[in-house]
Amino acid sequence: MELSNDFKSALRHFVYYYTNGTLQYVIDDNELLKNINYREDLKDEASLVEQAFAIFANNIKMDESGKVLNFNHAMKRAAQWIRFVCREKDDTYQVEPEFENWEVELY
């Protein structure tokens, strides 16, 4: 089975928003990544970025034809991970709801 064009588009857009620093503007939550320079914070943390992409991919849901059904949700879950790992020492941010094992699985 090949990846659907809709999934390829969703992945491309997620990568685009992540790499140009505009993820916070497309997740329907203006506060989650506010004042967090995640690209700078994670530039030397490949495994943390890998985890964000895994969370995005693990959360994507598609119908039988490959149409992505929850693009914003998958991006927001990845953004929650980014927010969590980029928090300052005194920051008490917690992911809600907490990540389930299947969401953070690396394949």
Rank of each mutant, 00 (worst) to 15 (best):
M1V: 13
M1T: 12
L3N: 09
S4D: 03
N5I: 09
D6N: 13
F7R: 10
F7S: 06
K8W: 05
A10C: 14
A10Q: 04
L11G: 00
L11Y: 10
R12Y: 09
H13T: 04
F14E: 00
V15Q: 15
Y16N: 14
Y16H: 15
Y16V: 09
T19S: 14
N20H: 11
G21L: 05
G21F: 06
T22W: 03
T22D: 08
L23F: 06
Q24K: 15
Y25L: 09
V26D: 04
I27Q: 02
D28W: 03
D29W: 02
D29M: 04
N30W: 07
N30F: 10
N30C: 08
N30A: 10
E31R: 10
L32W: 06
L32M: 11
I36V: 14
N37M: 02
N37C: 03
Y38F: 10
Y38W: 06
R39Q: 11
R39I: 14
E40M: 10
E40W: 09
E40Q: 13
D41K: 15
D41Q: 14
D41I: 14
K43P: 01
K43S: 11
D44F: 13
D44T: 10
E45A: 07
S47T: 13
S47N: 11
L48G: 00
V49D: 00
E50M: 10
A52W: 02
F53I: 07
A54R: 05
I55C: 02
I55S: 01
F56W: 01
F56G: 01
A57T: 11
A57S: 14
A57H: 07
N58K: 06
N58Q: 08
N59R: 06
I60K: 03
K61P: 00
D63M: 05
D63T: 05
E64T: 14
E64H: 13
E64D: 15
S65D: 14
S65W: 12
K67E: 13
N70L: 05
F71K: 10
F71E: 10
F71C: 05
N72E: 09
H73F: 11
H73R: 06
A74P: 00
A74Q: 04
M75I: 03
R77H: 08
A78G: 07
A79C: 03
A79Y: 00
Q80L: 06
Q80F: 02
Q80W: 01
R83C: 08
R87Y: 01
E88H: 09
D90P: 01
D90F: 12
D90C: 05
D91C: 10
D91Q: 07
D91S: 08
D91L: 08
T92E: 12
Q94W: 02
Q94R: 11
P97D: 09
P97V: 07
E98V: 12
E98F: 11
F99G: 04
E100L: 15
N101T: 13
W102Q: 12
E103P: 05
V104P: 07
E105I: 13
L106Q: 15
Y107I: 12
Y107K: 15
